[in-house]
Design a binder for these strands. Sequence first.
RNA 1: GGCCCCAUCGUUCAGCGGUUAGGACACCAGGUUUUCAUCCUGGGAACACGGGUUCGAUUCCCGUUGGGGUCACCA
Length: 438
Amino acid sequence: MVKTMMTRTRFAPSPTGHVHIGNMRAAIFNWLYARHTGGQFLLRVEDTDRERSTPEAIKTLLEAMEWLGLNVDETPLYQSTRMEAHLAAAEKLLASGHAYKEDKGGTGQGECIIFKMPGTDMAFTDLVKGTLKKSAKDIADFVIVRSNGTPVFHLANVLDDIEQKITHVIRGDDHVENTFRHIAMYKALGAPVPQFAHLPMIINAQGKPYSKRDGDAFVGDFQEKGFFGDALFNYLALLGWSPGDDREVMTRQEMIDAFDLVTVRSSPAQMDLRKLLWMNGEYVRAIKPEDFAALCRSELSAAGVTPGDHADAVFALMQERTKLPSEIVPATAFFFTEEFEYDQKAVEKKLLKEGSFQCLEKIIGIFQTLENFDAETVNTALHNFVEQGGLKFGDVMPPLRIAVSGQQSGPDLAPVLAILGKEKSIARIRKTIERFKG
RNA sequence: GGCCCCAUCGUUCAGCGGUUAGGACACCAGGUUUUCAUCCUGGGAACACGGGUUCGAUUCCCGUUGGGGUCACCA
């Protein structure tokens, strides 16, 4: 039996306040691969830009990861603590002849340290893209320490990956060209070269890569809009990868079991918000009723609405029709307050019609005769009314719905009426007639 | 522009020489004897183009076109 080294992957973002959706997808793939192989997933905060790497930015990053369930196996490494090691390595490269000093461009800014490429053609096998080659003439030497004495990304990145014993570097497509340089550095440093996997870009609805201008591309935005972390994780995992069969809504464990880098596609994928929304709805319907109820209560309380009697019955009615928690308040507020708004368009289209008010008057009469006011009784009464009067449901139900809820759509009307109760239902119908008739 | 990568329905993921080219989202129609949502049924919808290789190409090779990445003392 061959003893293989434990897989160690990492997510190495620079904390600049917002975590980009493409970056987070890379984090997800790193996490998934580590979990699939029984290895470890690490975090390295590349916070060398002290201007932008604020404590708040780091907090935002950590929160986004927690929200998505991306747990790490070791204390995060902060790159800013590693400057001395980076510089020491540069000296070592200088001493071994793998780097040289030069006043590049003769700008008079002083000498910087430049890494010397081996001058041979290079090739490596990318786990998702296959074999990639580069001619020696196409890769130039590059700066690793600036003339002001600070290490450049390439140096810091490679050294920290060595420090963290990373075995698989899984990152965005935009790093493929750098990989040739990085491999040369691993070799010059006498360090084992890790495996590389470059993920295709995620592009926006216009077919362009997400940029800072795409306001909807940050992880925090999805959280604010009420998406579930698990749903976003699931959706993102399926962008560029599939389990090989038709499964789409999957549990974490199912994704972990099925995940592999070699089955990742190498072409860019476009984010489809509608499918994400659909998937979120799948997750909403999958949670326990009591969890959904708790979610509803927090949404309502945030909106200043106090859920009254029968709130749980209302929530039960809502769970199967909710895709985003933000829909809850507008859809249920009328249950808990008499001050609900009327949908003006609905009123004009469905309520202000010939016979509507007469019809509503009759319904009041019928409701008054009912002793029980449960959903079934109400339903039967309404059906009898329609049939005996030779009416159409389409002429009766919409005005009634608007009268009690102000809206033209919602859950089944009978249970809605039952939850409101006889007194309130009748009172609301009366109030509506007074307000809009004549 | 040089170098590199990519190319299946509108979107996404399958397909890895022979298939009626499949699933999902979205869309359309019908149904679940009121709406919307859910759910069910059905439908339209794709192999960028041109050459090869082969008995046979969506699949392999080359080119074209299109898209993307990268060419910093940014990361």
